[in-house]
Every structure is written in C-alpha cells, then in structure tokens.
C-alpha cells in the first residue's frame, strides 16, 4: 500500500509517522520507533509476546495494521516504568519469581495491566483467562498468576489507581 501519515498517542505522547498503513504495529514499534520491549515470538497472533494496549485493551500488535491505530492510544511496556520507577505489577513479577527467560514477560505484564485496569480484584480463574493468550514456556504460569494476584492486593492496599 501507499505510505500515509499516521498520528497516534504512544505512551502518552503524540507520534506522527509516514508509513505503509498495512505494516503491522509490531514492526512499526520495533523497527521504526525503536521500542524493542515489545517482543516478536511468532508474528501471527499465536503467542502474545507482542501484546500492547490499544485504547486500554490488550491486543497482539503483530495483527494490527498500523493504519488502524490512527487517532488511537497505544501503550507499550516502556510506559510502565518511566523515570526509573517500576510499576507494582512489575515489582510483583520479580518478587514472585514470575520472570525466567523474560521473553514473554513484557506481553504478560501488559495483559495483567489491562486486566487490573478493568477488574482490580480478579479471581485466579480470571487471571488465567486474561493471560491465556500469552504463551510462556519457562514458568508453568503459576508464579505469574501469583504475581498478578499479589499486585492486585498491593494496588488495593496502596489505594492506587492502576495507572
């Protein structure tokens, strides 16, 4: 397709790019905008490593043609730990041993983030459902689930809103 100008909100800042609108959001984020925190595990929507938030919903960035994000809000893993601060979800991932090779971790954290935005006190089954599109080969998911449960409690204790 012909290139066109795409303007969207990326990690709370406006971005303007001139790009083939059929290019995937994943390759735009990584190869054009240098945001390598979003991982490419299959590029076919089958592993969830490339999960980002599109208007607050977790999506596979590899399946989103960038033309679709025109005027939308996109959040990547880089937005969760700005200015040297680490999000409570990330703290709990470390604390509970939920990070092994770490390749699924950014996508997994973002699925958790999207879940907690919508449902601040999820049950374990809801957590499993929320991360069921994120494959992890290292962990068997148990410590990831523990981390998300624990992050929900921590956020509630702190009386923090998720963001």
């Amino acid at each position: 397709m012909k290139k066109q100008v795409i303007i969207f909100q990326l990690n709370d800042e406006p971005v303007e790019i001139y790009v083939d609108p059929a290019e995937s959001l994943l390759t735009v984020l990584r190869d054009r905008l240098g945001l390598y925190g979003t991982k490419a595990g299959c590029s076919k929507g089958e592993c969830g490593a490339c999960t980002v938030l599109l208007d607050d919903r977790a999506v596979n960035s590899c399946l989103v043609p960038v033309g679709k994000v025109q005027g939308c809000k996109v959040e990547t893993i880089e937005n969760l730990s700005r200015g040297g601060k680490v999000h409570p979800i990330q703290e709990e991932f470390v604390d509970k041993g939920a990070v092994q090779c770490g390749f699924c971790t950014p996508g997994m954290v973002l699925s958790a983030y999207a879940l907690l935005k919508e449902n601040p006190q999820p049950a374990r089954d809801q957590i499993k459902m929320a991360i069921s599109g994120n494959l992890c080969r290292c962990s068997g998911y148990k410590q990831i689930e523990e981390a998300i449960l624990s992050a929900a409690k921590k956020l509630a204790r702190q009386g923090n809103s998720i963001t």
Partner: peptide, 9 residues
C-alpha cells in the same frame, strides 16, 4: 474465540 487479545479486536 482465539485469545483475549484476539477477542478484544
């Protein structure tokens, strides 16, 4: 359908 990410879009 698919996964949460796919159902979301």
């Amino acid at each position: 359908v698919g996964s949460p990410q796919i159902r979301n879009i």
